Computed example of a mutant assay.
Amino acid sequence: MSFLEGRVAIVTGGGRGVGRTYALKLAEHGAKVVVNDLGGDAAGGGSDDLTPAQEVVNEIKAMGGEAVVNGGDVSSWDNAREMVAQAVETFGRLDILINNAGILRDRMLVNMTEEEWDIVVKVHLKGTFAPTHHAANYWRTESKAGRQPDARVINTTSHSALFANIGQANYAAAKGGIASFSQVAARELQRIGVTVNAIAPRAETRMTAGLREWTPEQLERRDPEWIAGFVAWLASAEASHVSGRVFEVWGYGITVAESWQHGPSCEASKDPSVLGERVSKILKFARGNAGINPGEWLDP
């Protein structure tokens, strides 16, 4: 229980899937948890049913922990502010923010509607920015008052963004934005004692159910608890030296994604007629873009 004893966490999208597992794992190790969830379906539809979040809270209390439900929309500026305030008012502080809430509206880009683009970007990207903004302002106030935080923001990116999965232009764009946002936020918030990292989880949840058949071994390695263990470590005091990184996480291991790197270069020119040979040369020596290899989803 002492690993996260005394720390207070918010987990968005904490009623189901990996978010549920995060909330339970944090509580198992002593954290007090605000379980945020609207209760909608995987596409973001349905009525505001707080039952999944309440069930997680009930499980935490049954194990002797402390937790409360929050039913706010993470992409709402006011709801995000109220969520942070609820954590502080209920438990006296906030130490950990896990931005996990998300939806899917998959479609090839030529068929994608404006609404399908807007809602996915709003939930994922704004739904990461808004809670982080309000949490960061709370931590900045604490720092100015001489109470330097040892705080964590853990965001959720995706392999779809890192490796360009077709049929998910909206989701990949939002998740790619979250990866970059995490790196910028890490640099901005380090002076007030806040680390910011992002993870790309591989797990079997309702968002991935039915995509392919898995062997029992593969299903075991896609258990969300493998990811929750790493998230709990990132949330702990032990991880205070880790910030601005993106990690791939599943039961087969933890990998550091190395982000964009400078590759081969050539001399620029204002004359386009001379550039063909130069660009062809640097492309010859450049590594190809990393992509999703179907085999990677089956074996380590």
Rank of each mutant, 00 (worst) to 15 (best):
A235D: 06
S180E: 07
A130P: 02
K270F: 13
M63Y: 02
V34H: 01
I10D: 04
L162I: 09
A173Y: 04
A136E: 06
T21D: 10
Y22S: 10
T208V: 11
W117P: 00
A200D: 08
R278G: 14
P272V: 13
K175H: 09
N36Q: 00
V153N: 09
V121M: 15
N79H: 14
G64K: 09
Y252N: 04
S280P: 00
E115G: 06
A9C: 00
G251W: 03
L283T: 05
K284Y: 09
H134A: 06
V279H: 00
H262P: 15
A290F: 13
R206Y: 11
V57I: 12
K25H: 06
L4C: 02
E258H: 15
L24N: 06
A67C: 00
R7I: 09
S160Y: 04
K175A: 14
T113D: 01
A174Y: 00
V196K: 05
E267F: 05
R20M: 11
V153S: 12
A172Y: 01
V56M: 01
G46Y: 09
N197C: 10
G64D: 03
P149A: 02
V249N: 05
T156I: 15
K281E: 15
D73L: 06
I227M: 07
S143M: 05
G17C: 05
N36F: 01
G30H: 04
T205Q: 02
T113Y: 09
V34Y: 00
F129K: 01
S280T: 03
V11Q: 09
V194H: 04
I10E: 06
A87M: 08
G92I: 11
S240E: 15
R140T: 15
K122P: 00
I96A: 00
Y138H: 15
L24T: 06
G177S: 08
R245E: 12
R245Q: 11
R278Y: 11
T12N: 10
I98Y: 01
N293A: 13
E217R: 08
L97D: 04
A43F: 13
N99T: 15
E5C: 06
K144D: 07
P52Y: 11
V123W: 01
V153H: 04
A87E: 05
T215C: 00
G229D: 13
V246I: 15
N70D: 14
T205R: 06
S280C: 07
N36L: 05
G102I: 05
S158G: 11
